[in-house]
Deep mutational scan, measured.
Amino acid sequence: KNAAQIVDEALNQGITLFVADNRLQYETSRDNIPEELLNEWKYYRQDLIDFLQQLD
């Protein structure tokens, strides 16, 4: 998997990933985040941060 796929997957589930103060953050109206997504975000944290910062 790559960062773009993970960001896309999150968006499809109503979750927006973004970077604030060099930390990976998310916004969602969901009550909870599936644990497998959280684990994936932790595992790919630096890739996601790098990818999202390139988009800014």
Score class of each variant (00 low, 15 high):
Arg23Val: 15
Asn12Asp: 12
Gln46Glu: 11
Asn2Trp: 07
Leu17Val: 02
Pro34Ile: 03
Asn12Thr: 13
Arg23Trp: 08
Lys42Cys: 11
Glu36Trp: 10
Arg45His: 15
Leu48Gln: 00
Leu48Ser: 00
Leu48Glu: 00
Asp56Thr: 13
Asn22Ser: 09
Arg23His: 11
Asp56Val: 12
Leu52Lys: 00
Gly14Val: 02
Arg30Phe: 07
Ala10Asn: 02
Phe18Gly: 05
Phe51Asn: 01
Gln46Asn: 11
Leu55Lys: 14
Phe51His: 08
Leu48Ala: 00
Ile49Cys: 06
Val7Pro: 00
Asp31Arg: 02
Leu17Phe: 05
Phe18Trp: 08
Glu40Val: 08
Gln53Ile: 14
Ala10Pro: 01
Lys1Pro: 04
Tyr43Pro: 03
Asn32Val: 12
Ala10Glu: 01
Asp56Gly: 14
Gln5Phe: 05
Ala4Met: 09
Arg30Asn: 12
Thr28Arg: 03
Tyr26Met: 05
Glu35Ala: 10
Thr28Cys: 03
Gln5Ile: 07
Arg23Gln: 15
Asp50Gln: 10
Asp8Gly: 11
Leu52Tyr: 03
Tyr43Met: 14
Ile6Pro: 00
Glu27Leu: 12
Ser29Trp: 09
Glu35His: 08
Ile33Leu: 10
Glu27Asn: 12
Gln54Ile: 09
Val7Asn: 03
Ala4Leu: 07
Ile49Ser: 02
Asp21Thr: 03
Ile6Thr: 02
Arg30Ala: 10
Ile49Phe: 07
Arg30Lys: 10
Leu24Lys: 00
Asn22Phe: 06
Ile15Thr: 02
Gly14Ala: 04
Asn2Tyr: 08
Gln46Leu: 11
Asp31Thr: 09
Asn22Trp: 05
Leu24Asp: 01
Lys1Val: 05
Leu55Met: 13
Asp31Met: 06
Phe51Cys: 02
Ala20Gln: 14
Ser29Ala: 13
Lys42Glu: 15
Phe51Thr: 02
Gln13Met: 15
Ser29Pro: 07
Phe51Arg: 02
Leu17Pro: 01
Ile49Tyr: 07
Thr28Trp: 04
Tyr44Pro: 01
Arg23Gly: 13
Ile33Gln: 01
Tyr43Ala: 14
Gly14Ser: 04
Gln46Ile: 08
Glu27Phe: 13
Leu37Arg: 03
Ala4Lys: 13
Glu40Asp: 13
Leu11Val: 08
Phe51Pro: 00
Leu38Ser: 05
Phe51Asp: 00
Gln5Tyr: 05
Arg45Ser: 14
Asn22Lys: 07
Leu24Gln: 00
Glu40Phe: 04
Pro34Thr: 11
Asn39Ser: 11
Asn12Pro: 01
Tyr44Asn: 06
Glu35Ser: 11
Gln13Ser: 07
Lys1His: 04
